[in-house]
Simulated assay, not measured.
Amino acid sequence: MSTRRALAQQLGVVAGFDSPSVELEQYPTPPEVAASLVHVADMEDDVADRTVVDLGTGTGMLALGAALRGATRVVGVDLDREALDTARENERRVGARTDIHWVAGDATRPPLCPAEDDPVTVVMNPPFGAQRGNEHADRAFLAAASGVADVSYSIHNAGSQEFVESFAADHGGAVTHAFAVELDLDRQFPFHEEESKPIDAEAYRIDWTGDGASDD
């Protein structure tokens, strides 16, 4: 197994959005953050020999991280076909050997039907719901994860723990891990005033099987 730092270096070649959409809150996941999330998933045996689904994959950062860590297959789902074209190019850049499927579709209603004997891990960096009219957008992503995954890893705005734990419990899941991450967001929309801004965020592992136990 490569180290978290080595994985981040491998993901450093992943290109971001050519024309990011503010409505879809298309911000790239930094390689270091993707590597941290995937590394934890791998250490928990949630990547190797499993199907990994990246909901709202964008240009493929989390999906490619899972592919590099030996998932049996990876599925990246996104509405933005242009972003998926970039994800395919990124697949060639990283040289992952895992079978990757890039699927155009609504990540909150993923067109997937995993077999009962096929363990599925979801990884995702859903929109935080920061834009007016898009509040609580991450709820729909969590609901989608609960329907297809045994376990999910997701990134949320800082201060989301109470919400995530409550949502998981209401949908038959349990938060088993929580850790802080920092997103360095580069200036890409007209309303951004700074060239780069660090954003405090949190990542969560949720067991959707009903067998999870909280770390508390």
Rank of each mutant, 00 (worst) to 15 (best):
R5F: 07
R5A: 13
L7E: 00
G12S: 15
V14Q: 15
S19T: 14
P20C: 11
P20W: 11
V22L: 15
V22C: 05
L24N: 04
T29D: 00
S36R: 13
L37I: 15
E44V: 07
D46I: 02
V47P: 03
D49Y: 06
R50G: 06
V53C: 08
D54F: 05
G58R: 01
T59S: 06
G60Y: 07
L62D: 02
L68Y: 06
L68Q: 04
R73C: 02
R73E: 08
V77G: 02
D80T: 10
T86D: 00
T86P: 00
R88E: 08
R88P: 00
E89W: 03
A96I: 04
R97I: 08
D99N: 13
W102A: 10
W102Y: 05
A107C: 11
R109W: 01
D118G: 01
V120S: 09
N125T: 09
N125Y: 04
P127A: 05
P127I: 11
F128S: 01
Q131S: 09
R132T: 15
E135Q: 14
E135S: 12
A137G: 11
L142G: 10
L142F: 13
A143S: 14
V148E: 02
S152L: 10
Y153S: 05
I155C: 00
S160C: 09
S160E: 02
F163W: 15
V164D: 07
E165C: 13
S166A: 11
F167G: 08
A169Y: 03
A169E: 04
D170S: 12
G172A: 04
T176E: 13
A178Q: 05
A180I: 00
E182V: 15
L185W: 10
L185M: 13
L185Y: 08
Q188L: 10
P190H: 09
E194G: 01
E195G: 10
P198L: 10
A201I: 01
W208L: 02
D211P: 00
G212W: 03
A213P: 00
A213T: 15
A213G: 08
